[in-house]
Amino acid sequence: MDILKIGGQEIHNRLFLGTGKFASDALIPDVIKASGVQVVTVALRRVDFENEQENMLNYIDKECVLMPNTSGARTADEAVRIARIARAAGCGNWVKIEVIKDNKYLLPDNYETLKTTEILAREGFAVFPYMSPDLMVARQMRDAGAAAVMPLGSPIGSNRGLQTRELVRILIDEIDLPIIVDAGIGRPSEAAEAMEMGAAAVLVNTAIAVADDPVAMAAAFSMAVKAGRQGYLAGPGAAKLYAEASSPLTGFLRDSD
């Protein structure tokens, strides 16, 4: 059995689901069921007194592992505060660190993210930092006690796929922590590619949420992640420049030249 042991949990499904941007949150139970995801992210926000809304947690299967994110935080202090509130609210000890100051590309601030990771890991959180794929910072995240590192494939919500593949590949090669590709994955094939490269998991939100049929897309992503993972475990053969015949090169049904 191929199990991802991470943050004190045993994860069987390597597709992690983000829950933002769904046309209706009421779709989420079906999305979770169709894909079999176990790890689900949520965000924490101030209540809007003008608009009564359901608590997102009511849509998430109680068996799921919750990964609250610190979205909205611009500094380590803000991220730490959000993480502590989420844990006190009963969301468990997992947290995805997201510290962003850049509004155009929503690229993470690796420095503030590292500071947050150091503080929260000391406090016993399972810390999942969302980061730009930088080897040196990833090493520091590991040394700070991160449970995994989560490099972006391309900017959040862009559906542009694994634009950072070479840098992600280096992280997979060099960092002895699970590498979870987060952000930018737009299609199941791109999720499969990340898994074939040896990513431990992928986190997908927008690509599922904005699909014509989010439930069917979630199922497709789940299968792609499984296929990619199995392909990685099976050990792909080497790529070659020239052809190498698959059928024998002897015993042809013609006279010899």
Binding site: G18, T19, G20, K21, V42, R45, Q53, M56, S71
Partner: peptide, 10 residues
Amino acid sequence: LEILRFVGGG
């Protein structure tokens, strides 16, 4: 007082 709730997020 901070009155907060969980919302969808990625």
